[in-house]
């Protein structure tokens, strides 16, 4: 049991590190596109690592399926949201020169 716990803690820590990097990127990156990049990294990899960590902690099949389903849904939602925001930024950038 303990070996699973150690792996679980390592995975959760890795996930936390990605979230931290994502937050720092959100606050420090210069433009919206690169901020989006930082944000989606935290969503995809950070949450992925934490989900794997939690799976190793529970080791119960129904719980693992639910956790993976949560990750999959967030992946879908976050990549779509990222696309929508990126698309909006591009449209704004295209419209602005015409106004001037």
């Amino acid at each position: 049991m303990t070996i699973w716990n150690i792996f679980s803690i390592l995975f959760c820590l890795a996930g936390g590190a990605f979230f931290l990097a994502g937050v720092v990127g959100m606050l420090r990156f210069p433009d919206a596109m690169s901020r989006l990049h930082a944000l989606t990294k935290a969503d995809n990899l950070g949450l992925g690592f934490i989900v794997v960590g939690l799976c190793l902690r529970s080791l119960v099949v129904p719980v693992i399926i639910k956790l993976l389903l949560i990750w999959l849904t967030v992946l879908l939602a976050s990549s779509t949201a990222c696309f929508l925001v990126g698309n909006y930024i591009l449209q704004e950038a295209e419209e602005k020169p015409q106004e001037n």
Partner: peptide
């Protein structure tokens, strides 16, 4: 809207 959002919604509605 965009086809990406429409496909996401189409996929996620059963869920």
């Amino acid at each position: 809207t965009t086809i990406v959002l429409e496909n996401l919604v189409r996929g996620i509605m059963p869920l």
